[in-house]
């Protein structure tokens, strides 16, 4: 089990005396205990969702720091053949992210700027419906998850996704990784499909998704099922849109315009 605060202070004190540094001391003396003492996992949600305030995304750096955070947290490779690239979150123009809105008279700032796109973790995900092995499945907390062990690489999910959110490992991704930026998250192998996973491995440790953390408040993450959550508050007070809503997928990534 974990340890109480007295013991924690005792060990931390001894560790600093020995100059071993906090985490190493923990790992050496009681492996795994540090993780257990962090904030409890944010696991109690029923419907994880994201609200992106597009008004706060203007300069290229606003987008790049968010994209880079994801790439770094998940060892996403930079594939040589751009047509076979792997991307979990990226930016598109309005007419590409929201192609159903054939509005010729959009205000120029909206028409010219970019919008972040990623897996929408739909409530009715077509990708989950078509997967023959349940390698992609919907968790009780709303996240559409990938099980890389079970995926046979049939790419039916890629055909089923109406948002183009999924990428396939056409070759060994490690060839395109100069260094493994996050040793805690596995790289994938050739032959499996991958996509944004709402940073479920970070949620398990009580941390927000990497992109949300890097966005400096421009992106909000929370439980749609909880009427008091930040995301519900933002949606009550601001007009929001979603991508291709008429397809019935019920995407859970909202955009404040």
């Amino acid at each position: 089990m974990g340890m109480n605060r007295r013991e924690f202070l005792r060990i931390a004190g001894i560790a600093s005396l020995w100059g071993l540094g906090g985490k190493t001391a923990f790992e050496i003396l009681k492996p795994g205990a540090l993780e257990a003492q962090l904030r409890p996992p944010l696991m109690k949600a029923k419907k994880w969702a994201m609200v992106i305030d597009t008004r706060k995304f203007n300069a290229p750096e606003d987008f790049q720091k968010v994209i880079d955070a994801c790439v770094k947290a998940h060892n996403i490779p930079k594939v040589a053949n751009q047509r076979q690239e792997i991307k979990w979150i990226w930016k598109e123009k309005y007419e590409n992210a929201f192609p159903d809105d054939l509005n010729q008279f959009l205000p120029e700032p909206v028409e010219q700027k970019f919008f972040l796109v990623m897996c929408n973790h739909c409530t009715n995900p077509p990708c989950v419906r078509v997967c023959p092995t349940k390698a992609t499945f919907k968790r009780p907390d709303g996240i559409v998850m990938m099980d890389y062990h079970r995926c046979i690489g049939c790419r039916f999910c890629m055909a089923g996704c109406p948002y183009g959110s999924r990428s396939f490992n056409f070759r060994d991704p490690r060839r395109f990784l100069k260094e493994i930026t996050n040793p805690d998250y596995p790289t994938r192998s050739k032959g499996v499909v991958e996509k944004c996973n709402f940073c479920e491995e970070r949620l398990a440790k009580g941390q927000l998704p990497a992109c949300v953390e890097a966005s400096n408040g421009a992106m909000t993450f929370g439980d749609l099922d909880n009427p008091d959550s930040e995301v519900r508050k933002l949606l009550r007070e601001n007009y929001s849109i979603r991508r291709k809503p008429n397809l019935g997928t019920q995407p859970n990534v909202y955009y404040l315009i």
Binding site: G2, P31, A36, R139, D147, H149, D184, P186
Partner: peptide, 28 residues
Amino acid sequence: VRGDFSRQMTTADGRVFEKSLQKGCMNC
């Protein structure tokens, strides 16, 4: 991945480990 998504396990004698090849087994 598919069960209760818990990351920690406790041995019979109360020691806590990460349920992970990288962060559990290969830590030691």
